[in-house]
Design a protein around this nucleic acid. Sequence first.
DNA 1: GATGGGGCTTCCCACCATGGGAAGGTCAAG
DNA 2: CTTGACCTTCCCATGGTGGGAAGCCCCATC
Lengths: 149, 149
Amino acid sequence: MNIGEVATASGVSAKMVRYYEHVGLIAPAPRTEAGYRVYGQREMHLLQFIRRARDFGLPMERIKQLVALWGDDNRASRDVKRLALQHVAELRSKVAELNAMANTLKELADQCHGDSRPDCPILRDLSGNEHRVTQVPKTGRGFRDRLAG
Amino acid sequence: MNIGEVATASGVSAKMVRYYEHVGLIAPAPRTEAGYRVYGQREMHLLQFIRRARDFGLPMERIKQLVALWGDDNRASRDVKRLALQHVAELRSKVAELNAMANTLKELADQCHGDSRPDCPILRDLSGNEHRVTQVPKTGRGFRDRLAG
DNA sequence: GATGGGGCTTCCCACCATGGGAAGGTCAAG
DNA sequence: CTTGACCTTCCCATGGTGGGAAGCCCCATC
């Protein structure tokens, strides 16, 4: 398979296939005389595997570890399970955090008239009222950064 | 206040204060003869406001709108409420999505022996078994992108 | 008055995963 | 042989943030 074929078959763009090779996530593909990358079924499956792991929201670092286990016939399922459960725990904690944000914001919105008057408790709260309804993380960085890890 | 002072007082780094000015989120600060930026209480509060909105996970685009409303004495609370509820809805849908991922991964992990044997349903599933336990989005991009979008 | 240190300025670089696009080589179908 | 689709490498942009360099400025201390 050419890179375009393996891209279509695996659902990973050709750009990303080259990128994954570049950063060492997948082994350098053998080349034809003209320099074209050549892939087989195994590489196609590996790329599908990576794409699914991405869909699960797994960070690249963890995917690297899983890829290593994937290619290792002597792996222990313990290691795989550990990585998976670690990610489950992180997802759960992010869920809790986002829920807290949503709840706080919802409560504030409920207290807002929502009419043509300018007075609004949402802006008052954002402007520095310390009587928070729900705990919001105090770190300087937004949750997206922590999600992106 | 100098930029360093307003940074400390607001909890936004000096770098980010310049960045916010650069991208038009805050108005260009007046300068001393030597070119130093000068800030007052109002700017400090605005920066606190922005930082809090970031802590809430609000995307920059929405923060821009809120900042405009914040500085507008004639604003309608309706507009603020609409933006807040919009963000609540998005947070809730992200929560649901992350929960689905966590559930699927958890179920797979539960089916994994977790011992020294190599066989593991997690890797089998990631490798292309289509009998998904829980719906996972089929888009090619991971959830982080959608979250950040 | 000179000197030193810390703060300010601008500008460039890096991150990460991804896409866009240009310039140039290759392959296959007509 | 031509044409068009595909491949190659290389550079650039994103967005929010930090790091750092080069150079200017201000204040305090000697």
